[in-house]
């Protein structure tokens, strides 16, 4: 069992979400890219190119395994088969970090391939904490839990999201993955103060930071409705919020997420360099 006291063993540098089309560019010249994140579900096959590429990359880069399908917030038991596949992946790869989302995605009907929202109540807290405990037991490692983007509110919610995440970390010993774009999206959509969220966040528990792009829309009343899309560059207000966060937290492993309309590697490298420039003065 690894050291459970540090939230993750990723380097305090910029990383990118790995896309197979960037393999040759990454191997030739990664630039400031110091680590890679993969979506766990894409590497659960038995073999072939995905596994071979991952094996080769893992010899050169620290790898973060990011699950998108465990449905940790689901109101039914975790899928044991899926948990077993996660354990097999983590066992052979021995990643520097494993993370998942505060969300649900699977119900009796099937897997919906989206991060669906949860009301913040005592009942939800107890259920999610139990699921995190189960994941950490099965994987034999500490996990990071990511804050969601929110678009709507639940009448039954009784807790602030920050308090909910803090209490989960306290109960389960899990670390937290702070997605700065999600903070900005949620604060805009709910009319709250993103910096106040950062001020209240338990930054000592943060093992990784995410930065990504979002789409802009408006709701029925004309209020801004931002949608987490990972399909474009990080916007300036999110960079400003990132700088604000890092000034408080100190350097943290920081991921550039770009999952749809994926650009050329040079674009991702430039985004990673921008994050690196904000991290470096703190490191020095």
């Amino acid at each position: 069992m690894r050291d459970m006291s540090v939230p993750s063993s990723l380097p305090h540098a910029a990383g990118i979400g790995y896309k197979s089309r960037h393999y040759a560019d990454l191997v030739a010249d990664p630039g400031p890219v110091g680590w890679l994140e993969i979506h766990a579900e894409n590497y659960m096959g038995d073999g072939g190119r995905p596994i071979a590429q991952l094996r080769a990359l893992a010899e050169r880069f620290p790898i973060s395994v990011h699950g998108v399908g465990l449905s940790i917030g689901g109101d039914r038991p975790l899928d044991r088969d899926h948990l077993g596949r996660l354990r097999r992946l983590c066992d052979w790869l021995d990643p520097a970090s494993f993370s998942e989302h505060l969300a649900w995605s699977t119900h009796d009907t099937g897997y919906l391939n989206d991060l669906l929202p949860l009301p913040y109540t005592d009942a939800t807290l107890a259920r999610v904490a139990a699921h995190i405990g189960q994941v950490q037991d099965v994987l034999g490692r500490r996990m990071l839990l990511e804050n969601p983007s929110t678009y709507l509110a639940f009448d039954e919610t009784t807790m602030e999201e920050v308090d909910f995440l803090s209490e989960l970390a306290r109960r389960t010993g899990c670390g937290l993955l702070l997605d700065i774009n999600n903070v900005f999206v949620s604060a805009t959509n709910q009319g709250t103060d993103a910096r106040a969220y950062i001020d209240a966040f338990p930054l000592s528990q943060v093992g990784e930071v995410h930065l990504g792009g979002h789409d802009e829309d408006v709701d029925d009343t004309g209020r801004p409705l931002l949608i987490d899309s990972h399909g474009c560059a990080v916007v300036d207000p999110v960079w400003a919020l990132y700088r604000y966060t890092i000034a408080q937290s100190g350097p943290r492993p920081t991921l550039i997420e770009w999952d749809t309309d994926v650009p050329a590697f040079a674009t991702l490298r430039a985004e990673a360099a921008r994050a690196d420039a904000i991290l470096s003065p703190v490191t020095a």
Binding site: D155, D219, T221, L225
Partner: peptide, 14 residues
């Protein structure tokens, strides 16, 4: 049990 977060109906946010 859902709203837009401002006391109004959830509408297109769902």
């Amino acid at each position: 049990g859902l709203s837009d977060g401002f006391g109004g109906p959830v509408g297109k946010r769902f």
